[in-house]
Simulated scan of single mutants.
Amino acid sequence: MQQRPQPIAVKDTTAAAMLDMPASEFRRLVDRGALPPPKEIGGTTRWRVADLEAIMMGLAGKPGDNDDFE
């Protein structure tokens, strides 16, 4: 049986679910700068899973502190 690949970028609803919060709260935290901004990929908006994991593990500052998310 073939395993599905782990996503490297996800939409807002998936990112919110990963953080166990409503999508509206996730978007509010992104708008406030508490979570990393999304990337535009071919006309779609996605959040890098690695950026979200780094925030949760304390390995990255909040967006704007440095260029970790650019």
Rank of each mutant, 00 (worst) to 15 (best):
M1A: 05
M1R: 06
M1D: 00
M1Q: 08
Q2W: 06
Q3C: 00
Q6L: 08
Q6H: 05
Q6S: 12
P7I: 04
P7L: 06
I8V: 12
I8P: 00
A9R: 11
A9Q: 11
A9H: 07
V10K: 12
K11W: 03
K11E: 08
K11L: 05
D12A: 15
D12I: 11
T13L: 08
T13P: 03
T14L: 10
T14M: 09
A15I: 13
A16Y: 08
A16E: 06
A17L: 09
A17N: 04
A17W: 00
M18A: 10
M18E: 06
M18P: 05
D20N: 15
M21S: 09
M21Y: 02
P22D: 12
A23C: 11
A23K: 14
S24Q: 13
S24L: 03
S24K: 13
E25H: 05
F26Y: 14
F26P: 07
R28D: 07
R28G: 01
R28F: 00
R28C: 07
V30S: 00
V30C: 04
D31S: 12
D31A: 14
R32A: 14
R32E: 04
R32C: 01
R32S: 08
G33T: 14
G33I: 13
G33W: 10
A34P: 00
A34M: 04
L35C: 04
L35G: 06
P36D: 02
P36G: 00
P37N: 04
P38G: 05
P38M: 10
K39C: 00
E40S: 12
E40F: 03
I41E: 12
I41P: 02
G42H: 03
G42C: 10
G42Y: 09
G42L: 04
G43I: 10
T44F: 15
T44R: 15
T45H: 09
T45G: 01
T45N: 01
T45Q: 10
R46V: 01
W47F: 04
W47L: 07
W47P: 00
R48T: 02
R48M: 14
R48V: 14
R48P: 09
R48Q: 09
R48C: 02
V49D: 11
A50D: 15
A50Q: 12
A50G: 02
L52T: 14
L52V: 15
L52P: 13
L52H: 09
A54C: 13
A54F: 07
I55Y: 11
I55E: 05
M56C: 03
M56T: 02
M57A: 15
M57T: 11
M57R: 07
G58Q: 08
G58K: 06
L59N: 05
L59C: 11
A60N: 08
A60E: 10
G61M: 02
G61F: 09
K62V: 13
P63K: 07
G64C: 05
N66H: 02
D67Q: 11
D67K: 03
F69P: 08
